[in-house]
Design a binder for these strands. Sequence first.
DNA 1: TGCAACTATATTGTGTGCAATTTAATTGTG
DNA 2: CACAATTAAATTGCACACAATATAGTTGCA
Lengths: 158, 158
Amino acid sequence: MTDMQACDATKADLAATETGELLLQNQVCFSLYSAANAIVRAYRPVLDAIDLTYPQYLAMLVLWANDGINVKDMGTQLHLDSGTLTPLLKRLETKGLLDRRRGANDERVREIWLTQAGKKLKEQARDIPNTMFCKSELPLEELIALKATCDKLLSKIT
Amino acid sequence: MTDMQACDATKADLAATETGELLLQNQVCFSLYSAANAIVRAYRPVLDAIDLTYPQYLAMLVLWANDGINVKDMGTQLHLDSGTLTPLLKRLETKGLLDRRRGANDERVREIWLTQAGKKLKEQARDIPNTMFCKSELPLEELIALKATCDKLLSKIT
DNA sequence: TGCAACTATATTGTGTGCAATTTAATTGTG
DNA sequence: CACAATTAAATTGCACACAATATAGTTGCA
């Protein structure tokens, strides 16, 4: 009743042939993909004020809550790997927001530490969540439900 | 009661200071962004079988329903611009799936026409929507609600 | 009709995402 | 203790997204 309920062959065949599953209009994933792109676009003017991209802002969120975290643990939180994070963190280092230090015990590990400028930026970011909330113009309950479904979907397909 | 309900200053201040809005765990947008990335990853092994990326697959969906569409109209449907679509369509042309013809009436317009191989690929893609539906392991109703909220969000922030 | 405004596409440059591979350091095991 | 297996980052290569700009081609209107 839970796992396979969605994969009943008869249901699936009916859906594919009669409701046009190969139409863009019927693709949940496309809606999610488009909404995610739109979110990054909507953040842009807001984040321009503090000279961050959206992924850079996410990395800063992690650091503001976990100063000194290493690349692997940041990657676990952000669902991103070193191929994405290493150059991103180098750019934030160039901006003077953080330092990338080798771990004292384990030379393989790269610890990411906020600079004073990096810590200070948190104050300027204080209003961003509410600004974006207002941009969405969606009821809080609907956003909460959206987050719950996205989190569930992520855990299922990862 | 509708537009500004979310932006009440007192509510917002409370939320920011007391519930930690600058925490990754409380970011709806981050969940959406991560789920969208995960979707592209989940499509990869499925689409490898027909040698398409996820954005290329979306472009093919548009073409299978609108053969001969131009770049601008495809961009409207996909919420993507020529900066993204021109190189993507060139890659699909190189694969032999489509032709890029100049419009007969208007030389500025680029019409995209499926080749025989491009049309034939639709048969091989027939099962993909259901395969992905099964991967998600989410009830149909929840996916429908997810799509509705994403579509609403997209229209609000665009 | 001339030509400025507009439109469709293409190009350039920057920053992701991510698979695959490489490099260097650490750990487990005989 | 040697050394294969493992691990953390970094690197490489490719394909997006998208802002900004460039290039043609078309249209409107004085």
